[in-house]
Amino acid sequence: MDIVYHVFSMFALISLHVFLYGCNLFMWKSTRINNNFIFDFSSSTALTHRDAFLMSASIMCTVIAALVINLFLRNAGATYTDALPGALLVLSTGVLFCPFNIFYRSTRYCFMRVMRNIIFSPFYKVLMADFFMADQLTSQIPLLRHMEFAACYFMAGTFRNHAYETCTSSPQYTHLAYVISFLPYYWRAMQCLRRYLEEGHDINQLANAGKYVSAMVAAAVRFKYAATPTPLWMWMVVISSSGATIYQLYWDFVMDWGFLNPKSKNLWLRDQLILKKKSIYYVSMLTKEIPIPMFSGTNTLKTQMLNLALRLAWAQSVMKLHLGRVESRLLDFSLASLEIIRRGHWNFYRLENEHLNNAGKFRAVKTVPLPFRELEND
């Protein structure tokens, strides 16, 4: 059942991330944030929120159907039941690389192009879509770990004898897990260094790279503590992770969102705000509140998640919780899901700040000055 957990968790996390991206698209459109201009996407082929919701629902329905079939096969005593998760991986890979103009080909090719730019950082010019996607990957490290296990399980042929320990206890697997946990932060740091060189040695880019380096240091110390659980390394985890958390919180609020400006006419926010209620911004800084207007009009769905609590998720690594196998996996999946929710919330304010900066430099407009509302064909 190990491979079932890893593969289905992987697709569940992807579905959740796509759903939250759909929420972002809906909010950006509702507040007239020109996300296609910022990402340099073509308006004729860019995803809409309906497309994102459809993709998310399709992924989740496929996963649930595969899970139910897998359970029926196991109860029937069928052999090679692990072939179903493998078939799901093959199907998704085939859809991603499908050359025909179906299943959002322009979006799939754009995704692969952006991923190529990220993987080969800093050898490609860094665009907004590139470092925005790289930031998403820093919240998807559990997904990358699931992919690592699935690749090991099927490529090493351990699915024939269900030797799960081959892909969990071997030193090579442990070292590879260490590298995978570093990669998203490494890619993002390399992008910052590339931008530092291209943008006239902007010191802010070096400071941004330092944020990701601090995350790598904190991750390295946690890995060392997992291998050598001594009091010294426990305090090293607390110090390094606390420092990285403070660094990341400051950068989120001040640099990415433009908040905590003491000279702003909106106390401790920024001068220009898109959302009408300033209280939403204050609450968001503490609770990561995502305002999602419902289609009925005035109601608001508010998904609250403590930002600080999510940034302090690393603390569970030093708490020595005595959990069973199922409880441990449930905790890991819950923390991974909460991190994706935090990232989805971060996305809205990040692009809002970028949009207002563009408007201030006359590269975009804050609102569309039309005397009528935009209508869509359902």
Rank of each mutant, 00 (worst) to 15 (best):
A163K: 10
R373Y: 13
Q316K: 13
F123H: 04
A220H: 13
P99H: 01
S15H: 10
I119L: 15
I119H: 05
V254W: 10
H355C: 02
L267T: 05
H6F: 15
L310S: 11
P142T: 01
R108Q: 07
Y80G: 03
I280P: 04
Q172M: 09
L275I: 15
Y80A: 10
F8R: 06
L370E: 09
L54D: 07
D378G: 01
L89D: 02
N70S: 13
L370T: 09
H201E: 13
F41Y: 13
Y186E: 02
L249N: 03
F19Y: 13
N70R: 07
Y178L: 13
P369E: 03
F53N: 04
M147G: 06
F154Q: 04
R350W: 13
I341D: 02
P171C: 02
P231V: 03
M285E: 04
L96W: 07
L306I: 08
R113Y: 11
Y282C: 01
L144Y: 14
A78W: 11
F11K: 04
N307S: 09
T138Q: 07
V237Q: 05
W28Y: 13
A46T: 00
D256K: 06
C61S: 14
L275R: 14
F111I: 06
N24L: 14
H49A: 11
C110M: 14
M27R: 14
L269F: 10
L321E: 01
C110Q: 15
A66F: 11
W257N: 03
A87P: 06
A163H: 11
I69T: 09
L331E: 06
A315H: 05
M216K: 00
N24I: 00
M234W: 09
N101I: 01
L193A: 06
T303S: 10
R160N: 07
